[in-house]
Design a protein around this nucleic acid. Structure first.
Length: 720
DNA sequence: CTCATTAGATTTTTT
DNA sequence: ATCTAATGAG
């Protein structure tokens, strides 16, 4: 017998209805903390255990790898006994598997390489440089975001409307980029999904085989799917229509990545016979926290009104602390955690959440100084460090020298071997002329005279590592690479702490490889190096996941989605931080549009909502009047979101003297409108719009030289 | 070609 | 403040 009956009995009627829904489309809209993941987990277990659906014919999609692992674990836990293996993964992970086994049908190199955002950006940057395409109108990141936007809405180069010079250039870059990726066997994140959908669309044989095999498709976090992912769902699950989608529009926080929370409604419309279940009972938070979160999210327009409720009673109000500066904010949190910990709370019960990764630094310093153990998720990623990227470049060359030109460029002169710009250019030229890889070009050039003698040891090194690859394990190969390449020696020579730390990171990298080996023990014997190199890009998260140690958890609001903690510090509740204003008095914003701002503001509010609803029993709001930004102290004002929470749900914990926000009346509004003003950086302009919020005036100003920007009133002066 | 110094930039969030 | 790219001296 298995544990399903027992589990079903523990669910509420709505949850049970969703879990045991008959075949056919199912849409679950679920508020924060209402147990939507539990519904998915139990439904998978129910399908396997009660309906006897073979586990490997069920496919479930989650948003993060962490969530996928958790889901597999929980399904297995319910179905005690024999091992079950439903297919669970992220869109990107699943599409990668699909393409690896069908690279031929997909028209991809057998050993195609996956680029992360950094790789993609430097490829674009190099393309622009080498082909002299450094147009003033375009930046590499501009091109990058254009290409990704296109791919996310299933558009290839040439399929977008060209309406001005700039968009013409962008299309041109997209074309060049596509060709380059094709030639080099490079695949970016969006391409994984796009290519998969295209194979399903055009290859009837593959499509039919897959559609026959898959009996059920389940998708979590449906509000965060984009056009491409919606189509993926249709190709993989649309034929049998056994699709379960779970989501919450109030937690849609990835529209900047092309996500369309409207996909929830689209699903409901398109599969009009679907069973729709709404989960509105919150099991996570105390009443004051839930009431506060509900009040906040109510400010968003055009949303389906939910009445999220809880049976929990009691609980304290939100504790609000407004600090003089960011250091004080951090110290306050340290003090509070100390006090709780003295009462016997475990450090792992605390989470410090922030809008931007840059904010973590303050907290890291304060916690470090006080000797409180903490763990930062994400941040400057381990796998993005220079020394780590260098080592991985060697491994990529070992795995497949012919589809990793960028890796060759990186590895060939790290550590310095006297092979520089001139040599690189010759290699690139020859590779282009003869349509061969950089590696082949380098090998050919090595025999062409004394000038190329320096590359011979390098070629030998790679060949040597390739032969070692056959006999040594992944972690051993990693260690040999670091030693034989001279990377360790190179970094050990330096005495300053930054460089010394790199040696430590190299050790850490070997450990990570060993950890990967262990986690993959049960899986087949397909080349572990290839799978490791994929996982480094697709799942660079925690190298040692189930860290049992007691540590305070620190992460961005985005990373926190789907998690819960007894005590949560929601930090940086300041205008321009949360809500964040990328369009605020900064560089390019000639395309600033009011409607877009509205949309972005609502997403910021949802982000705040996500943060608040992570808390089970205690929630803190913290902010600071002054923060260090790029080496300078800047002034900040309390976030509008604090005002949007009813006063009686907030308790002032400790507050340094905050000047009462100046109340702006209508007369002052009118005062600004139409006035000529000047700004220190942007020069002269005219105020075209005024908006007041929480005592702060936001002026839309049409500048003579730099176009339209939104500026805080305190940064401009009226011309006399 | 390497190393050191300097000028310049820095779009928030993640697979 | 901190990182990278560009520049110049050896």
């Amino acid at each position: 017998m298995n544990g399903i009956e027992e589990r079903l009995a523990a669910l509420n009627p709505h949850q049970r209805e969703a879990v045991t829904a008959p075949d056919g489309p199912l849409l679950v809209t679920a508020g924060a903390g209402s147990g939507k993941t539990a519904v998915l987990v139990n439904r998978i277990a129910w399908l396997i255990g009660v309906k006897s659906v073979p586990a490997n014919r069920i496919i479930a999609v989650t948003f993060t790898n962490k969530a996928a692992r958790e889901m597999k674990r929980r399904v297995q836990e319910i179905l005690q006994g024999e091992e079950v293996n439903p297919v669970v993964g992220t869109f990107h992970g699943l599409c990668n598997q699909f393409l690896r086994t069908r690279h031929q049908a997909a028209g991809l190199d057998r050993y195609f390489n996956i680029m992360d955002q950094d790789d993609q950006k430097s490829l674009i940057s190099n393309l622009m440089k080498e082909r002299n395409l450094r147009y003033t109108e375009l930046t590499p990141s501009g091109v990058q975001s254009y290409i990704n936007k296109c791919k996310e809405s299933k558009k290839r180069a040439g399929e977008s409307e060209v309406y001005n010079h700039r968009s013409e250039l962008l299309e041109h870059m997209y074309e060049i980029y596509e060709r380059e990726c094709e030639e080099q066997g490079q695949v970016d994140f969006a391409e994984l999904i796009l290519r998969t959908v295209e194979v399903m669309e055009h290859n009837a044989e593959v499509r039919e085989r897959i559609q026959q095999r898959i009996l059920h498709v389940l998708i979590d976090e449906f509000q965060d799917t984009n056009e491409l992912q919606y189509q993926w769902m249709e190709f993989f699950g649309g034929w049998r229509r056994n699709i379960s989608a779970v989501g919450d529009e109030d937690q849609s926080i990835y529209s900047w990545r092309g996500a369309l929370s409207g996909n929830l409604k689209r699903f409901e419309r398109q599969y009009d016979d679907s069973l729709v279940v709404r989960l509105e009972q919150n099991y996570r938070s105390t009443k004051p926290i839930l009431d506060a979160a509900n009040a906040l999210i109510k400010q968003n327009t055009n949303r389906f009104e939910k009445k999220l409720w809880t049976g929990n009673s009691g609980g304290s109000r939100i504790k609000y602390m407004s600090a003089g500066d960011s250091n004080e904010e951090a110290e306050f949190i340290v003090d509070q955690i100390r006090a709780f910990a003295d009462k016997g709370r475990s450090l792992s019960e605390f989470a410090v959440l922030y809008r931007t990764n840059a904010q973590s630094r303050n907290f890291e310093e304060a916690f470090g100084a006080e000797g409180i153990p903490f763990r930062v998720y994400g941040g400057v990623r381990f796998y993005q460090r220079k020394e780590v990227k260098e080592t991985l470049s060697y491994l990529r060359l070992v795995a497949n020298p012919n589809s990793n030109d960028a890796s060759l460029v990186k590895a060939i002169n790290c550590p310095p071997r006297g092979i520089g710009e001139v040599a690189r250019r010759s290699i690139a030229e020859m590779a282009a002329d003869q349509e061969i890889s950089y590696w082949e070009a380098t090998c050919a050039l090595a025999d062409t005279g004394r000038r190329w003698a320096k590359v011979r040891p390098f070629i030998k090194l790679i060949n040597n590592l390739q032969s070692l690859h056959a006999t040594y394990s992944l972690s051993e190969l990693m260690e040999l690479t670091i030693e034989l390449s001279g990377l360790r020696e190179h970094y050990e020579q330096h005495t300053d702490p930054t460089e010394q730390n790199r040696v430590v990171n190299l050790e850490e990298l070997i450990n990570a490889a060993a950890g990967f080996e262990q986690s993959q023990e049960s899986t087949g014997s397909a080349d572990i190096l290839d799978r490791y190199l994929d996982s480094v890009v697709l799942d660079p998260g925690d190298t040692h996941d189930d860290d049992p140690e007691e540590k305070v958890q620190m992460m961005t609001l985005h990373t926190a989605k789907g998690l819960e903690f007894p005590i949560v510090f929601l930090t940086g509740l300041d205008e321009t931080i949360l809500p964040h204003f990328h369009s605020f008095g900064s560089w390019q914003s000639s395309t600033f549009r009011k409607s877009k701002e509205q949309e972005e503001m609502q997403e910021e509010r949802r982000l705040c909502y996500v943060g608040m609803t992570r808390a089970k029993e205690t929630l803190y709001f913290t902010r600071a009047n002054r923060r260090m930004l790029r080496g300078q102290w800047e002034n900040y004002h309390q976030s509008r979101f604090v005002q949007e929470v009813p006063r009686d749900l907030i308790e002032l914990v400790r507050s340094t003297e905050v000047p009462e926000p100046t109340v702006i009346n209508d007369a002052e509004h009118v005062d600004w409108l139409g006035k000529s003003v000047s700004h220190r950086k942007f020069g002269e302009g005219v105020v075209t719009d005024v908006e007041a919020n929480v005592g702060i005036l936001y002026l839309t100003i049409d500048f003579e030289t730099v176009g339209t920007k939104v500026i805080l009133s305190e940064f401009v002066s009226i011309d006399s």
